[in-house]
């Protein structure tokens, strides 16, 4: 009798288990069948032996143009968040408690908008890099901090340049450059009053800036962009910018970025006409000696 009951119970349990079935394949687990793996593998391995794709002959620039303009705000920008400054207060409180994400200057100019050429530009070809940039190539860029504020909220440099990470404070900092694209990541100890520690990015990307922070003073943040080419600008206090000697006669892609909205994708007004940039990008071909003027008006809603 006992064995019969045991059997019945096991049978019931077993049936219940059968009904519940095996654990379902959850979405986060990926399951690809063996045939697909094999096919994909063959496709991916095809052509491994041949030495890459043939070089596409690029059109050569025919001269140089200027890109200039101004970013202005229509409406009232949202208030910036307040920072909690609770370390080294004697030095750091002087830096203010405003987290300056959106900075609006005179004439409603939007400061710290980054604009750069995201097309592939041959970096060593004088047909593409104007001679005026040869001095820039070897120039040092400074990235300083004072009163526990990064003096460049949006830092930008050209990959072959060297950036000196300075400290104008009487307290020690560390500068953590968290690059996830191309350029190197670093986390420097920057001694008090240090004249600078050299950052050599050793790479670049067109994918936009990466965050910079200080682990000792966690409220300190900034962004850093390492560009593949020297054609970039960050808007000044009044929202204006100029990039000189940009290759003309070839179509170039530009990208527009700001810390709050990232790449500008909401509708903006460019020289009076409503425009929508896909991922903040637009293309333009200038002729030799041209000046492209971009007067961009952004609605305050872009920064919400």
């Amino acid at each position: 009798m006992t064995s019969k009951r045991t059997c019945c119970v096991s049978a019931l349990c077993g049936l219940a288990l059968m009904l519940c079935g095996c654990p379902r394949q959850t979405a986060e687990r990926l399951s690809v069948d063996a045939d697909t793996i094999d096919t994909v593998r063959k496709v991916l391995e095809a052509g491994v032996a041949s030495s890459g794709a043939a070089e596409v002959a690029l059109a050569e620039p025919t001269g140089w143009a200027t890109v200039t303009g101004k970013f202005t705000l229509s409406g009232t920008a949202p208030a910036n968040p307040t920072l909690t400054i609770d370390k080294d207060t004697a030095v750091c409180r002087a830096g203010g408690t405003e987290n300056r994400v959106v900075v609006i200057g005179p004439g409603n100019g939007i400061q710290n908008v980054l604009i750069y050429v995201s097309s592939k530009v041959p970096n060593d070809n004088p047909a593409w890099i104007h001679e005026s940039y040869e001095k820039v190539r070897t120039a040092e860029v400074t990235f300083d901090q004072k009163n526990c504020v990064f003096l460049s909220r949006v830092g930008v440099m050209w990959a072959p340049q060297t950036m000196m990470v300075k400290n104008s404070d009487s307290v020690g900092h560390n500068t953590k450059l968290d690059s996830t694209f191309g350029a190197k990541s670093e986390n420097f100890t920057v001694p008090a009053n240090s004249p600078g520690i050299a950052y050599l990015p050793g790479g670049a990307s067109t994918r936009g800036p990466f965050p910079v922070s200080c682990s000792i003073h966690p409220w300190m943040i900034a962004s850093m962009m390492v560009c593949e080419n020297p054609y970039f600008a960050v808007t000044a206090e009044d929202g204006s910018f100029t990039i000189e000697n940009v290759p003309a006669g070839v179509e170039l892609e530009f990208r527009v970025w700001h810390e709050k909205p990232s790449f500008i994708r909401d509708e903006v007004s460019v020289n009076g006409s409503p425009t929508k940039w896909k991922r903040g990008a637009f293309k333009h071909k200038s002729e030799d000696g041209d000046t492209l003027t971009l007067n961009v008006v952004m609605d305050a809603a872009v920064f919400n």
């Binding site: 019969k4 096991s10 049978a11 077993g14 049936l15 288990l17 059968m18 079935g21 095996c22 687990r29």
Partner: peptide
Amino acid sequence: FVSAVAVVALAGPMAGCSRNEATFNR
């Protein structure tokens, strides 16, 4: 008969589930 059902019922899910290959998480 009951025993056979029990064995099949218990063995079924065991064999079925363990046959699933391990997978990577996305």
